Simulated scan of single mutants.
Amino acid sequence: MNRSILSSRGVNKTLLLSATLVTMATANAATPSEMLGSYRAESGSVEPSPSRGQQFFSASHGREWSCASCHGAVPTQMGRHVVTGKAIAPLAPAFNPERFTDAAKSEKWFRRNCGDVVGRECSASEKADLLAWLLTLKP
């Protein structure tokens, strides 16, 4: 077999392995700031905007609910699901240290809640904006 073909296959495998390792590292983000970095990288060159995040949180996006419908107008306090009445711990990481520390769990809730609120999955830039805003909320 031609050496250049073998060499290019090796490079492709190395690139694939590198991309996989980067994805795994971001999928296991341990802090909200690391998760914000993951969303920022995934969204490309758009810098996260806390003001866009706050607007996104409060808007109904043409549907019945907004994020604030369940998480409360102030996501630093307990919320309550509008249908089930189930209590929801504060969304802002400074008020709930478990928030945005498990990427798989965060993605599960983004998928579910964005479907209810926006009618689709949220983009990486929307997630970055929202998290950027939530990280500005301090006790």
Rank of each mutant, 00 (worst) to 15 (best):
27 A>T: 14
104 A>G: 04
112 R>E: 14
34 E>G: 08
54 Q>C: 04
39 Y>V: 02
33 S>Y: 07
82 V>W: 08
95 F>I: 01
111 R>Q: 11
114 C>I: 07
60 S>W: 04
39 Y>K: 04
85 G>R: 03
111 R>H: 11
50 P>K: 03
47 E>V: 15
56 F>L: 15
93 P>Q: 00
53 G>K: 01
82 V>T: 14
130 L>D: 03
122 C>E: 02
94 A>D: 11
42 E>R: 08
35 M>R: 12
72 G>N: 05
35 M>W: 08
121 E>W: 07
36 L>S: 02
84 T>A: 06
112 R>V: 13
110 F>L: 11
34 E>F: 04
75 P>W: 00
112 R>K: 14
59 A>G: 11
55 Q>F: 04
31 T>H: 04
98 E>Q: 09
34 E>H: 06
33 S>I: 09
85 G>A: 02
52 R>V: 05
38 S>P: 11
48 P>I: 05
39 Y>F: 15
129 D>F: 08
56 F>M: 10
50 P>N: 04
119 G>L: 10
117 V>I: 10
129 D>P: 07
67 C>V: 05
94 A>C: 09
126 E>W: 04
106 S>L: 04
44 G>Q: 08
86 K>C: 09
78 M>K: 15
132 A>G: 10
37 G>R: 05
36 L>D: 01
106 S>M: 05
102 D>F: 01
87 A>K: 05
99 R>Q: 11
69 S>V: 00
132 A>Q: 07
119 G>T: 08
108 K>F: 13
129 D>V: 10
28 N>K: 12
112 R>M: 13
